[in-house]
């Protein structure tokens, strides 16, 4: 178990390093191959009004004239140990993890990301609670009443949920519930949980439901398929033969058996979401990681983009590890070696 975790952690570091190399390569190697000079890259850092002399100086200071490997080393060291930026008169220290400074705001990227993270986490957790409960419950009932009206209706709605994009369902529900009926928040607002939990929930309710709808649909279908399979297992027959009430048979024996694949998908979905619910956040103008990413890409703000990519990759890799560990908890037959 311990060796397993250590091995997986080593792998996680390797994975993240690879991701960082690839991102770094995309932003610094590819432009070079396309013919960009160090000065072209530095021009983005110093702004349009800079003179040729200033650009040259910046390129030198930012180390764009060094070999790429040295540049990557500096970049990686910044993330791990922090970095010092020489601004000429003063030296500015950027503590670890340092993704550098935004082109636009001149602020370090990491604190910005930290500011945005609670929004995305709030959005992801709330939506996850809703979609897991709604999706699994719908799936169980559908499986038990296969072919019934409920089953057909639920699977129809689920199909819609899977196929309709967030910006569509999000817009429609905004128009309907916020602007029309005024039951939910109009978007563009976020209250931290610690400030006021009620407002926090009120502000996020619509994004939660919109996001959950997309996922719940998928989970309902998965749960239904899993339940149909497990309810035919021999151990379900044994549970009934013991004289267990049908509810216990379904929930304790059937659902427990069907949950494993759902857990896997959930880990990946949740990890991805933590890296930014891009569509939801932009639809509702929520200041989360996803919105941050969209803006960063829009302004071609390299340090910001790299920061978001690495944070998102971290969550996915981490979620994967957690899922694999949970697997062993849920299914005792799984041995982590």
């Amino acid at each position: 178990m311990v060796t397993y975790i250590i091995r997986r952690l080593i792998w996680a570091v390797v994975m993240l390093s690879i991701v960082s190399i690839i991102t770094f390569g995309i932003f610094f190697l590819v432009p070079r191959l396309a013919g960009a000079t160090p000065e072209d890259l530095a021009a983005r850092y110093v702004g349009r009004t800079a003179t040729e002399q200033q650009v040259k100086l910046a390129a030198e200071q930012l180390g764009f004239n060094d070999p790429l490997i040295v540049q990557y080393g500096r970049f990686a060291k910044g993330i791990v140990a922090g970095a010092d930026y020489n601004n000429g008169p003063s030296v500015e220290h950027c503590p670890a993890p340092c993704f550098g400074y935004s082109f636009r705001t001149r602020l370090p990227v990491w604190p910005d990301l930290l500011d945005r993270l609670p929004v995305t986490i709030s959005l992801a957790i709330g939506a996850a609670v809703i979609w897991v409960i709604a999706g699994v419950a719908t799936g169980v009932v559908s499986a038990l009443r296969r072919g019934s009206f409920f089953d057909r209706a639920a699977m129809g709605v689920a199909l819609a949920g899977v196929s309709l994009p967030i910006f569509f369902t999000g817009m429609v529900s905004l128009v309907l519930f916020s602007y029309g009926l005024h039951i939910t928040a109009p978007g563009n607002v976020y209250t931290p949980f610690l400030t006021n939990p009620l407002t926090w929930a009120y502000d996020l309710l619509l994004p939660w439901i919109t996001l959950a709808f997309l996922y719940a649909a998928n989970y309902a279908r998965l749960t239904r398929a899993g339940m149909l399979e497990t309810m035919n297992e021999d151990y379900i027959r044994t549970a009934r033969a013991k004289g267990l009430a049908e509810r216990t048979v379904v929930l304790k024996h059937g659902l427990r058996g069907a949950l494993t694949p759902i857990l896997t998908i959930f880990g990946l979905d949740f990890g991805l979401l933590l890296g930014g619910a891009v569509l939801t956040e932009s639809t509702y103008s929520l200041p989360g990681i996803g919105k941050y990413a969209i803006d960063a890409i829009g302004y071609q703000d390299l340090p910001q983009v790299m920061g978001v990519v690495l944070v998102a990759a971290f969550f996915v890799v981490f979620a994967n590890l957690v899922v694999d560990l949970l697997y062993a908890v849920v299914d005792p037959r799984v041995r982590l070696v």
Binding site: D234, Y235, T238, R256
Partner: peptide, 18 residues
């Protein structure tokens, strides 16, 4: 389970693995 009980063929699949 109380008055009448049953033993099945394949005890691996007839017992809940979890």
């Amino acid at each position: 389970g109380k008055k009448m009980a049953m033993i099945f063929q394949d005890p691996l699949s007839a017992m809940h693995p979890f």
